[in-house]
């Protein structure tokens, strides 16, 4: 994992899923789980991946797009171990590798739904987005979110800032600050650095909409709802396939339809019923295909 397992975002979403799967399989006795967190340096992560493979773990997950190249190299050397990585859609099957799974949350789906919610909640009609780097699930989330807002309220304005860093908390705080100054009363953002933005949102009494992991606990009076990545289904499926001898080749999509993505409201904040109804309608539309979340 690229950051800490309690980052309230990307790494935590996977960590929570693994813990849940472990619990359902009988705790420590049923499933052995080992985690290397804070792997900012790709070479360190690559070393960890190789170690786990050598120790004979059934499934080795490289949780970060940046680990793809290393994984591709290592997977070749351990054909009997199942590997997985994400967010990604490429299992390297075209390169003759048969033991890599890929998983990809369709962040745009929850993004769209939260966009609808934001449009309903915003009084000023200005909404701020704090992104890290314009790539991966951060980009698809932001694009879906924007479409959700503008499809709901044509004249609403969505201001987007990318800070250029997944980890710079204080810059993310400054981005939220700037949004607030520019009039935004609903904020959202992606990556592990958003805690900075959430702190500012709390300060400015704005509403925060989270993604990746359940962010309510970070600021119970501020977070309105979160899109939660639930990897537990995917992890279970990968373990099942692996047990049957299929070590890779499948690219999983987390979506609202499969239950891999969820919208979780914060009950402490009273969200108007019509807003919730609009979100439900949007989710239904995405699931049955009548709404395309990406432009």
């Amino acid at each position: 994992m690229p950051s800490a397992s309690n980052d309230g975002a990307f790494s935590q979403s996977m960590f929570d899923a693994l813990k849940a799967v472990q619990a359902s399989m009988g705790g420590e006795a049923g499933m052995k789980l080992a985690v290397s967190e804070g792997m900012v340096q790709v070479p360190n992560a690559a070393a960890a991946i190789r170690d786990y493979a050598q120790q004979g773990y059934d499934l080795v997950i490289a949780h970060g797009t940046q680990y793809g190249n290393s994984l591709q190299e290592i997977a070749k050397d351990f054909p009997n171990i199942a590997f997985a990585w994400g967010t990604a859609t490429d299992t390297f099957a075209d390169k003759g590798i048969k033991n890599v799974f890929a998983y990809n949350p369709r962040a745009q789906e929850g993004g769209y739904a939260l966009g609808v919610l934001a449009a309903k909640l915003s009084k000023s009609g200005i909404i701020g987005v704090c992104g890290p780097v314009e790539a991966g699930d951060a980009k698809t989330y932001v694009d879906g979110f924007k479409k959700g807002v503008t499809d709901t309220k044509k004249d609403a304005k969505v201001n987007v800032v990318y800070t250029g860093s997944f980890s710079d908390v204080s810059l993310m705080a400054a981005a939220a600050e700037t949004h607030s100054k520019a009039g935004a009363d609903v904020l959202t953002g992606s990556s592990q650095a958003v805690v900075g933005a959430i702190g500012v949102a709390k300060d400015k009494k704005a509403i925060w909409l989270g993604t990746q992991a359940l962010q309510t606990a970070l600021a119970p009076d501020t977070v309105g709802a979160s899109q939660v990545y639930d990897f537990s289904g995917v992890v279970k499926e990968m373990l099942a396939l692996s047990a049957k001898g299929t070590k890779g080749g499948t690219a999983f999509e987390l979506s609202l339809k499969t239950g891999g993505l969820k919208i979780v409201y914060n009950d402490k904040l009273s969200i108007p019923a019509d807003a919730k109804a609009a979100v439900d309608a949007a989710m239904k539309g995405i699931i049955d295909g009548t709404i395309k979340p990406l432009p």
Binding site: D7, V169, S170, V195, G199, K202
Partner: peptide, 18 residues
């Protein structure tokens, strides 16, 4: 000033090189 002044949260490596 970061954790209880500007951001009001703590995260690992929150200074990120500041």
């Amino acid at each position: 000033s970061l954790s209880i002044g500007l951001i009001n949260l703590f995260q690992e490596n929150m200074t990120s090189g500041l």
